[in-house]
Design a protein around this nucleic acid. Structure first.
Lengths: 247, 247
DNA sequence: TAAATCTCTGTACGTTGTACAGTTCAATGT
DNA sequence: ACATTGAACTGTACAACGTACAGAGATTTA
């Protein structure tokens, strides 16, 4: 039986590693397993990460996968932590907090674009992993030099990351083409008939926003809109807002 | 075979209803089916909404459920729309936009507390339903009298709702007690050992934020923090911000 | 009365996670 | 040297899921 999740998460520790195990050597390392699982998820989403598919990639039988992880849920946590650990953050250099926060948001958006399946994953145990904790620490430093106390600092970071995640979800999952597109258009046509002249505001705004969404520039625009709101909201908290130096 | 999803969503229309169907009368209305499905979800989450469980509640065989809905996915969309339709919004009265936006956020938080499963549901077809569209229209009106154009109005509402959803997700899903609690404490104990003295900022902030989260007041505090940021961010957009009248 | 078209049923299939009982093999204790 | 231990791996099997498909029975329409 594999080690508990916590130990698997921290498997790259310098401590206590080299107790030669008995039995045959494992054909794959834990990292191999997790990496291949991430490949599956990157290609076809979390749904494609089945024990059987993973076993095939590893050239093992399905049940042998359980030699390496205790359950599929544990595997997903390991995947998330590895993704967080492998993230390559933009340096904060000597920039003002606004710029640093912007970098945090941009980096997280990039992360979620690269690994959209992270959006479908919400296991609190992810917070136990070294990759996730290191990311948390790094991003907390974005607020260095501000007047935020510890609780506010955590809340502010959460605020930024929640925004990023929500917007990423809207940017990233865009099938919207192919034969699904036709079905959608049909539905919208029928919808117009049902709506008639009711709810004019919703119709007008929905149409405008929908058209804008068709264009390639809107995802970016929504992102900039929201990010500017986030920064303004946080600046308000600062009271006296040091003029952005690098923006 | 049941009608297409769009027609099921709009089944309460005054138009075209009374064409007497042939065969036997259905033992349940579509609304019955959806209501019972919502009951299941309210009690035990979306995972409890299985065709078989629903069939049992309806005193039908599993396959008979498909007389009323085309698929489980369609059912979920119907559930979401009904939840939106049954929402009882707080009146805007004659309040300032800040107050109105606050009401929108509060109402949505209440909705998500009542139906946490809405957090697990992300089918774009929900936007086709009358309940959802009416909600969209009502909430867009929160920005009446501001300088926002249509695109910005949609973006602003999205911004508020995304924040609400993210915070609700953190507030609502709190098992955290029972025997799971022990397992968690064990993990945290082990985690402390692994962490040692590394990442002091993450440790300090994480501890403080974590302790605050234990207390009953913090969920509320995070909510107020974020909501204040959202309002400040939007106020910034307004440029000249009319003093809040009712706050 | 016959045809059409509904509701509802029973059986069955494919896919999923994974429990359980082995088999094989390398390191350890004697 | 040899038995013991424990780890890696395998094969079979089960329960739960969504739902395809073929029909049975009821009720309206021609």
């Amino acid at each position: 039986m594999p080690e508990p999740l916590l130990d698997l998460l921290w498997r790259n520790r310098a401590d206590v590693p080299v107790i030669r195990r008995r039995g045959p050597k494992a054909r794959h390392s834990t990292t191999d397993v997790v990496t291949l699982a991430i490949d599956l998820a990157d290609e076809d989403g979390l749904g494609a990460v089945t024990i059987r598919a993973l076993a095939q990639k590893l050239e093992l039988t399905p049940m042998s996968v359980y030699t390496h992880v205790n359950s599929r849920d544990d595997l997903l946590v390991l995947m998330a932590d590895q993704a967080h650990a492998r993230m390559t953050p933009t340096s904060f250099a000597r920039s003002a907090w606004r710029t640093r926060v912007r970098r945090v948001a941009d980096d997280n958006l990039a992360l979620l674009k690269e690994h959209p399946w992270l959006l479908d994953l919400d296991d609190p145990r992810t917070a136990l992993g070294p990759g996730t904790i290191a990311k948390y620490d790094r991003e907390l430093h974005a607020f260095d030099g501000t007047s935020l106390d510890d609780v506010a600092r955590d809340a502010a970071l959460t605020f930024v990351l929640d925004f990023t995640r929500a917007t990423a979800a809207r940017i990233v999952v865009r099938p919207a083409t192919g034969e699904f597109g036709e079905l959608w258009e049909q539905s919208v046509a029928g919808l117009v008939a049902y709506l008639g002249d009711d709810l004019p505001l919703a119709q007008r705004v929905g149409r405008v926003a929908g058209e804008a969404m068709g264009g390639p520039y809107d995802a970016e625009r929504a992102w900039q809109f929201g990010l500017a709101r986030v920064l303004a909201g946080l600046a308000d908290l600062e009271g006296i807002d040091p003029a952005p130096l690098v923006d």
